[in-house]
Amino acid sequence: MAQVFDRSSNALARMSLVLTGLIVIALGVGLDQLQRSPWVTRQGQRPDQPVPFSHKHHVEGLGLQCQYCHTSVEKSSYAGIPPTKTCINCHAQIWTNAALLEPVRHSWATGESINWIKVHDLPDYVYFNHEIHVNKGIGCASCHGRVDEMPLMYMQNTLQMEWCLNCHRNPGVNLRPTSEIYNMAWAGPSEEKPVACTSTGKGGPTAQSVSCKVVDKGGPLNVSLETTGGMTQTFTSQADLGRFLTQQYHIRSANELSSCEVCHR
């Protein structure tokens, strides 16, 4: 009787074994990478806005502070997109004929809202609160990236749950003095630029209970801090500062901060 399979089948059989293993591994790794890829998270994608608003121009170029437009960020869960009125404050006089600004003028004339496209769009079962983060020492740039360098808005971070939880479980790495919240270029304390902090004794659960100043090595060593006689501590690393601020800001434990009801009500 003739052979059913010729000798080449040996190689095929071996290869299929190896390939099956490789395919399974590749699938696992591929799916794992895919769920974090910009293709899924839309990181770095710049959607076509009705007006190509440039944060780079308004923040870096003109020196506007974030709260000029996003007024409610310290007081509300929602940071707010400025109304047309905010644009018109200046653009009633500046670039009044620019074609780019036609939708703004149209909105102002008719009362129709400008349909900005939300770049940081969390699902509605996530109850994100801006106010608590800003008041507990998380700067804008920690989550939104260097918005002052973005000609068109895009998402710097994934906004995935693991990203949120990484910080909620270890907030210290991102904490900064409340005076530096809107400083897009804040880089954390270092040997060259230590941070001096002291308790103001004002108490309460907000970050106002601590006063900090960045000390430039070249500048005066005696920094003037608002104090009530507490010891002034100087920090040269983010780890030490984070530990101090976690305590001063009364930031809750990782267990409490990663409990579902913190974000999902």
Binding site: D32, Q35, R36, T158, Q160, M161, E162, L165, N166
Partner: peptide, 16 residues
């Protein structure tokens, strides 16, 4: 039923 795979322990972006 389309979320039944959440019953499997796999590393996911939710850390759940």
């Amino acid at each position: 039923p389309w979320l039944a795979y959440w019953l499997m322990p796999y590393p996911n972006t939710m850390n759940v």
